[in-house]
Simulated scan of single mutants.
Amino acid sequence: MATVATGTAAASLTNTLFTTHAYAQGPADYVKGQAKEKIVEAFMPLVEMIQALSYPIALVMLTGGALMFMINQKEKGISLIQNASIGYILVQLMPLMMQLLVGIGNTVG
């Protein structure tokens, strides 16, 4: 019981600290930050859907590249495999790159 009560007290104290800290930078900055978070949250299902679709698309492209390689069109096959691999990696790293861009924007602005 003591742990639960202590956790509740810490949570209520933490919420109070966050609220006062958020308004320390000004209400306009707080609203901008909240709007930015809401926009990022709104686009996350779209990003997750694109990431989920990238696997089967990359699989088809890799298979096509392997078949091209097998029928003696090596350059075209290797190019297709490379493009599929690089594209898949970039799509999977998309959320990380967006967080990096947001961090740079916060630092600059």
Rank of each mutant, 00 (worst) to 15 (best):
A2I: 12
A2H: 12
A2C: 07
T3Y: 11
T3L: 11
V4N: 09
V4R: 13
A5N: 08
T6H: 12
T6R: 14
T6Q: 11
T8G: 10
T8W: 08
A10E: 11
A10N: 08
A11N: 06
S12R: 14
S12P: 11
T14K: 14
T14P: 04
N15Y: 06
N15K: 08
T16I: 11
T16A: 14
F18G: 07
T19F: 11
T19Y: 05
T20L: 13
H21N: 15
A22H: 05
Y23A: 08
Q25H: 08
G26F: 02
G26E: 02
P27S: 14
D29F: 04
D29S: 07
D29W: 03
Y30S: 07
V31Q: 08
K32L: 11
G33Y: 01
A35V: 09
K38L: 15
I39P: 01
I39C: 06
I39L: 15
V40C: 04
V40N: 02
V40G: 01
A42C: 09
F43E: 07
M44C: 04
M44T: 09
P45H: 00
P45Y: 00
P45A: 00
L46I: 09
E48A: 13
M49P: 02
M49N: 12
I50Q: 07
Q51L: 03
L53M: 10
Y55G: 13
Y55H: 10
P56F: 03
P56D: 05
A58R: 00
L59N: 04
L59W: 07
V60M: 06
M61N: 01
L62A: 01
L62H: 00
T63L: 15
A66N: 08
A66P: 01
L67C: 05
L67M: 08
M68I: 02
M68Q: 06
M68P: 00
F69M: 15
M70C: 08
I71W: 06
I71Y: 05
I71V: 14
Q73E: 12
Q73D: 08
Q73H: 11
Q73W: 13
K74M: 09
K74L: 15
E75S: 09
E75F: 12
K76R: 09
K76A: 13
K76L: 13
K76S: 09
K76I: 10
G77T: 00
I78P: 00
I78L: 13
L80G: 00
Q82T: 12
A84F: 00
G87M: 05
G87H: 01
Y88T: 02
I89M: 15
V91W: 00
V91M: 09
Q92K: 07
M94S: 14
P95H: 02
P95N: 03
M97H: 04
M97D: 07
M98W: 01
M98F: 05
M98S: 03
Q99G: 09
Q99V: 07
Q99F: 13
L101T: 02
G103Y: 03
I104F: 02
N106L: 12
N106T: 03
V108L: 07
G109A: 03
